[in-house]
Design a protein around this nucleic acid. Structure first.
Lengths: 177, 177
DNA sequence: TAGACTAGAGAACGTTCATTCTCCGCACCA
DNA sequence: TGGTGCGGAGAATGAACGTTCTCTAGTCTA
């Protein structure tokens, strides 16, 4: 197994487990078992669990935003498409809310790398929305709606939250757009 | 020390510690030290940590909603006052986001009582907002804004998120209200 | 074939922590 | 005064888990 492949399998396993059960609830041995990568290799690749967690978050950030970007782009970069994507996401089986918000909740005082990964994810999403909507204030308002709908959909289990947010976004965009 | 007083001190200590550092990061011994209640008494009062966590959440729910309700009521039950209260809250020193969202993130599979406490808190807040705003859809939209602003203020550390949400709420309320 | 390096399996170590147990002193009662 | 029981302090227990160590087998090289 090449180092690259080991890294991929580790990150894949980490994402599945960390997202589904929470970071703290998943031991390194579970990552080993799921990935099929030996513990020795695991620690050669990620010297500490925190490093694996940070890498998991950074990879998830890239992929999550890529998925959103592609969907919205395929819908003519219409800001409302963000909420269409959101509706799909929160209805997926296994949806458990935003990995970054969940991690923020898990760690009262996160390791610096983890805290940075969380903050930077939100910064990136905000920047993306600002690029989509000329009015920066409205972009930030949509951002709040997205985050709120995500959190509520996770806690209540009702994907309809995304539709509610979409209607609000429509009004906000129409008001000044 | 009377049983009532012991319970109070335990819940007070639990709230300070759990909210500030996260539930998992705080050991029962820290609660004992902070409360001044012996470990034996602690376990007589709350037979397991989960029971203490659930009681902490339920007490926080009551107080948090009471604070919001009183503030908004003092402002003529104007729905926008919710966002004024929010602005104060997120600017408080020690603000670390919503205790319920954080707990949701901490526990991948929470004990049933804890899961219920989290869900019921959100249900109560939603019901309160629906009582404040005749249009149920708009109430739910405001709810999303509140949750989003709370989460973003916690992660970015910027209380300005509450003001952004307030402006959005104003538009939504004006549009159909 | 002998030697040397690699990787994996899994045992071992050390710490943390929830929960329980032990022991001691103090107060109340006859 | 002598006994009885409650409460506290803190040690003990047992499990989980991050991290490291050991042993073994296989593979490549000379």
């Amino acid at each position: 197994m090449t180092p690259t492949e080991a890294t991929d399998r580790l990150l894949e396993a980490a994402e599945e487990l960390f997202y589904a059960h929470g970071v703290q609830a998943v031991g390194m041995d579970a990552v080993r078992a799921r990935s099929g990568v030996s513990l020795k290799r695991l620690y050669q690749t990620f010297p500490a669990k925190n490093d694996l967690v940070e890498a998991y978050l950074r990879r998830r950030d890239e992929r999550w935003r890529a998925s959103l970007r592609e969907f919205v782009h395929a819908h003519g970069d219409d800001p409302l498409a963000v909420f269409g994507w959101l509706r799909n996401w929160v209805a997926e089986p296994g949806f458990r809310g935003c990995a970054f918000i969940n991690s923020f909740g898990e760690f009262g005082e996160p390791a610096p790398g983890i805290a940075a990964a969380i903050r930077e994810h939100k910064d990136h999403v905000r920047a993306y929305l600002r690029g989509l909507v000329p009015d920066q204030t409205i972009a930030d308002q949509l951002f709040s709606l997205v985050e709120g709908a995500t959190v509520l959909a996770a806690i209540t289990g009702d994907p309809g939250e995304a539709s509610t947010a979409r209607e609000a976004a429509k009004v906000l965009l129409a008001a000044q757009g």
